[in-house]
């Protein structure tokens, strides 16, 4: 226990301290002449930057939308795939496949093969029905990113929730039927409460990854158009490695850490009650 906790502590503390340190420095990788203590200048610059507030909002919108879509659809699909039908095993394998696809590839497929206004499948379908194809990433950039990320994470939610549904005691359901509960009542009063633990695990794990979505944005929109899909992760990336403004990027990093802590605080507290340790 000691070694791995120590390693993790080091891994946490050293970069954290460095980030905080840099965030108070004037530090540009391209311009060695700039230097010295910056005080809260980096932070002041950050909070007065409209991009920052937009990125904060984008981060939360992305997180909330994907959580709602994946948990909602995931629950319904879990109930569906719990039913016995011919070829269920294969259908399930197909349905969970997107989870194994790396985010960069997922983004590329969707951007080019699916949503491309001219050559994409969506465009072709639109044509077939006589509509004008939509340029998804130009017109609905955030929705497009949400679509891609949801496609990646829906299988994860489905997998865990399906396992949970399958562990539901059949006698419980039979007892509910004896109490003349219909399909809908069974879902709300038996299945859903039974899933609450699994749902909190899905939310926790997904939040961990969704707060830090990067590759999907990097590959598809590069945060654009404008700042429409710039989340905090991408903003800091742009600051640090595109504008080489280490001080500013670090200030963003500190804010990201604070945000993560706020989310973690609420999440861990609600999860901790459900998870027995």
């Amino acid at each position: 226990m000691v070694p791995s906790v120590a390693v993790l502590l080091l891994w946490m503390i050293v970069p954290l301290v460095m980030t905080v340190w840099f965030s108070f420095q004037r530090y540009n990788l391209l311009d060695p002449s700039v230097g010295g203590f910056a005080g809260f200048d980096n932070y002041a610059y950050l909070v007065t930057d409209p991009d920052f507030w937009v990125s904060l909002r984008n981060t939360m919108v992305l997180l909330a939308s994907v959580l709602v879509i994946t948990v909602g659809l995931g629950t319904l699909l879990a109930v569906l795939f719990d039913q016995d039908f011919p070829g269920r095993g294969i259908a399930r394998v197909l349905a969970i496949s997107p989870f194994f696809v790396m985010p960069t590839v997922a983004a590329l497929i969707w951007k080019n093969l699916m949503m491309h206004p001219i050559y994409g499948v969506f465009g072709a379908i639109a044509h077939g029905f006589g509509f004008e194809p939509i340029d998804w990433f130009a017109e609905y950039p955030m929705a497009s990113v949400i679509l891609i990320v949801s496609w990646e994470w829906l299988p994860f939610a489905l997998l865990i929730l399906l396992t949970a549904v399958q562990s539901l005691d059949h006698e419980q359901r039979e007892a509910a039927r004896m109490d003349s509960a219909g399909v809908v009542a069974q879902f709300f009063f038996i299945t859903l409460p039974h899933l609450s633990r699994a749902i909190s695990v899905v939310i926790m794990i997904e939040t961990i990854f969704l707060l830090t979505v990067f590759a999907e944005i990097f590959v598809t929109t590069s945060g654009g158009p404008g700042n429409a899909t710039t989340n905090l992760a991408f903003l800091i990336y742009a600051r640090a490695l595109l504008q080489f403004d280490v001080g500013g990027a670090s200030a963003g990093g500190v804010v990201a850490i604070l945000l993560a802590n706020v989310v973690a605080f609420f999440l861990v507290r609600s999860i901790a009650r459900r998870l027995e340790v």
């Binding site: 906790v5 946490m12 970069p15 990067f214 905090l232 973690a264 861990v268 340790v277």
Partner: peptide, 27 residues
């Protein structure tokens, strides 16, 4: 302290890697 340590370890995972990108990059 086991319970606390576990939850703490998990919460570190929520920290976006971008937050520490710069120092790690420089390191």
């Amino acid at each position: 302290r086991t319970r606390g340590t576990l939850l703490w370890m998990l919460s570190t995972k929520m920290l976006p890697p971008v937050g520490v990108l710069v120092p790690i990059y420089l390191l």
